[in-house]
Design a binder for these strands. Structure first.
Length: 315
DNA sequence: CGGAGTAAAAGGCACTT
DNA sequence: AAGTGACTTTTACTCCG
């Protein structure tokens, strides 16, 4: 337990406020190889690669099973926060010695009932279900544990405040995850979240709005720069071009071209321009598709930016 | 085909009753 | 909770090289 917490803490380095492109504040946010984002004025803001765990993939579908097997895969996002006493699986005593077979039997029984005792009331069951759902979605979206943690925290809070009454648990779980992505600046669009959820977009956004309002969570609009890495990698675009795209976005922001516009659209437009400038051309169609917007939107952002900044962005 | 552009429909958001 | 209005994005289509 204790080691876990310490480990997590150390894997998570410094998440001071953003430095779009080699801005100022070092934003080294590196969770144990899993997700690496923007370093000390250095290079690209790179995003997570899929969670490499065959563990949870294995038990996707069975929605109710997992209550009875609360052990291995999730470290901390467990309904009781993993804070309740837990009898671990190592079959060792406090000094780390192997237990005798007889003792093991005993411990086994203890574990069994211990677990059973934990998930009794409905609140906990609610949490257990939702958190495993959260887990499922998060890994499907290639999100790091830490995002999942945040999502779990939000969800838990929502439960405490009784905000999910009369609302679908899955919708709220999805909403919490979406919020967590934004909080962690590892954005996923509502569509993307919706795809991994069993609930539709509308439901999620309703729950989302409700939850953030009630919990008084204030999330600034997503920074388009945060999308660059992901979209660009889908388009197989070089690092230089990515950096270029981020610069363009920053300039566009300085000139007030981005407020009120969808961040994905802005990112798409900037990426398109960057590919032209760096001779790595992609069609509007391709860019639009990777960003999940239409070509028209790409064009609009593109022409807006070019018009306003054209000679400003050479070199 | 890729790009530029446009009008009209649709969607999302902030405010209002 | 539905209505309104300003605004962005999408849909669907045309025209150009």
């Amino acid at each position: 337990m204790k080691e876990e917490a310490a480990e997590r803490k150390e894997g998570k380095e410094e998440l001071e406020i953003n430095c779009p492109v080699c801005g100022e504040n070092s934003v080294v946010r590196d969770y144990k190889r899993n997700i690496e984002v923007c370093d000390v004025c250095g290079r690209i803001v790179k995003e997570d690669i899929k969670d490499r765990g065959p563990e949870w993939r294995a038990f996707d579908q069975e929605g109710r099973e997992k209550k009875s097997r609360a052990g291995p895969p999730s470290t901390e996002t467990i309904h009781d926060k993993g804070l309740s006493t837990k009898i671990d699986y190592k079959d060792r005593d406090a000094k780390g010695n192997q237990l005798s077979p007889g003792k093991r039997q005993k411990i086994y029984r203890l574990r069994k009932w211990h677990k059973r005792g934990k998930v009794t009331d409905s609140k906990d069951r609610n949490l257990a279900f939702s958190l495993s759902e959260l887990n499922r979605m998060a890994s499907q979206l290639g999100l790091s544990k830490s995002v999942q943690e945040i999502a779990a925290k939000i969800y838990r809070k929502a439960v405490e405040e009784g905000l999910i009454r009369g609302r679908s648990m899955e919708g709220c779980a999805s909403a919490a995850l979406y919020a967590a992505c934004r909080e962690a600046e590892v954005p996923r669009t509502l569509e993307e979240v919706a795809e991994s959820s069993r609930v539709d977009k509308k439901e999620i956004s309703k729950s989302y709005r409700f939850i953030i309002r009630e919990l008084d969570i204030h999330l600034p609009p997503t920074d388009p720069v945060r999308y660059v890495a992901r979209f660009a990698s889908e388009l197989e675009i070089s690092g230089e071009t990515r950096v270029k795209a981020m610069e363009i976005i920053r300039k566009a922001q300085e000139n007030g071209l981005t407020s009120g516009k969808s961040p994905t659209g802005t990112a798409a437009g900037a990426i398109y321009i960057a590919t032209l400038m760096e001779g790595e051309r992609r069609t509007q169609r391709e860019v639009a598709e990777s960003a999940g917007v239409t070509e028209v939107t790409v064009r609009n952002r593109y022409s807006e930016i070019v018009e306003e900044l054209d000679e400003d962005i050479e070199a």
